[in-house]
Amino acid sequence: MQLTVSRDTLLKALSRAQGIVGKKSTMPILSNILIETVANDRFTVTATDLDIFSKGEYEGLSEKTGRICVNARDLYEIARNLPAGNASLETVDQTSVRLVSARTSYRIPTANVDDYPPMPDFGAVEYIAIDPDVLGGLFDRTLFSVANDDPRVFLNGINLEIPEAGRVRLVSTDGHRLSLIDGTVERTPELDHPVIVPRKGVVELRKLLEESADPLEMGFAGSNAFFRRADLLLVMRLIEGEFPDYTMVIPKSSTNVVKVGLVDFQNALKRMSILSLERSSGVRFALAPGEMTIESSDPDRGEGKEQLEIDYQGATLHIGFNARYFLDAIAVMKGNEVILELSDELSPCVIRDAGEPGFLCVVMPVRIT
């Protein structure tokens, strides 16, 4: 194989693969990517950890067709530090490839291409066009509360369901908090039951959506979710299992409702979390008509207190929460006001965005001594 490609194109292709290749796998081949020329002016880069497949097509001049399997991290670090301009990749023998750019050259070992897992034949997939900004916004409002490597595997993803035509609902929880967003879309995929989209796959999809606002299509078939653009296909294996009944976690009613300015509340939480217990990021809310006091303390580091003006006419209430959970929810809100719904010191708090009625977050209280 002999391929000439611009540094920027090569870097784009390799950066897309970094989060996908298997870093902790017992199969060394999964730390590699597969580069293959498909025409005299195009090449593809494939990356996988067996749960996620990514295949992108890029511009590059090929004088000799072929394919190579090379370590994804090493080639990325090399490309990231190359000078601007073109770089060439040429097979030296069956065990190495030479990369040349200006006065810089490398000889890099390659793996056996026949050992690289082929992308499965997924069969027919029905795709629908979806606004990438809309899809990205829906995932943003649920990704922060997904569990990470929880033994309850169904918590390591986002539950996606279609309540009715034109509506999509995403829900996630890590057992301590829950987030839910109802979104409106022009078309909905054909789904007759909820599916759980894996956290890692969503993270990689968000990276692609941040690259550009190019049109995006999505689809579901078998046990996989598919997302594609003109130059890229991203396939992720859905998580098996049944998502817990999240409706049992969301309080049906609350006796106390607080309205507070988003920026003031956010800044106060940031300031008070500085001296909170590092393990729990715990802060105490003291509610009284028209006023909220946020307190934090650590026996070894000191204590802090801040008062906020709020719209509240309920009873006096003292309750503790993890400040980070509130900050994560506030960070994805659109409006200027946060609505808190509480009942007592042992019940969860429902956090709502005054600027987006379809979004809510439920946070469990914590005991702070």
Rank of each mutant, 00 (worst) to 15 (best):
E211F: 03
A165T: 13
K64P: 02
P215I: 10
H318F: 08
N224G: 03
D51N: 14
P117G: 00
L287E: 06
I368H: 10
A288Q: 15
P132G: 03
E309R: 13
I181V: 15
C349V: 14
G175S: 02
T184K: 13
I239R: 00
T46Y: 12
P198T: 01
L14H: 03
A213F: 09
R152K: 12
V338R: 02
S253A: 13
E204F: 02
T104Q: 11
F326N: 03
R42I: 07
L99E: 08
N156C: 11
S179D: 00
P151A: 04
E77W: 05
N71V: 04
G56P: 00
M218Y: 06
T37M: 01
A329F: 08
V202M: 09
A230S: 14
I351E: 07
P120D: 00
D133H: 10
R367Q: 08
M333T: 10
D328W: 10
V97W: 02
T48V: 01
S273F: 05
D174H: 00
E210H: 11
D121G: 10
A13N: 09
G355C: 07
L269I: 07
G22V: 11
A17V: 00
I250A: 00
R7E: 10
V197F: 13
L269H: 06
F285W: 12
F226Y: 13
F285P: 02
I196F: 01
P244A: 01
V202G: 04
E295D: 11
T65E: 13
M248D: 10
I351P: 02
N32C: 14
L287M: 10
E186W: 07
T173K: 04
L178Y: 03
D93I: 10
S101A: 15
G201Q: 04
L99K: 04
M1Y: 10
G222A: 09
M1I: 11
Y76G: 05
E186K: 14
M333E: 08
M292R: 02
L34F: 15
S347I: 03
V21L: 13
R352H: 02
I250N: 00
T65D: 12
V350H: 02
H318T: 12
F265N: 04
N112F: 04
E63S: 14
F53A: 01
M333K: 09
T255F: 12
R67N: 02
D133I: 07
R141D: 04
A213N: 14
L11Q: 00
S347Y: 00
V332K: 00
V202T: 05
L178K: 04
A331T: 06
L342P: 00
I181N: 01
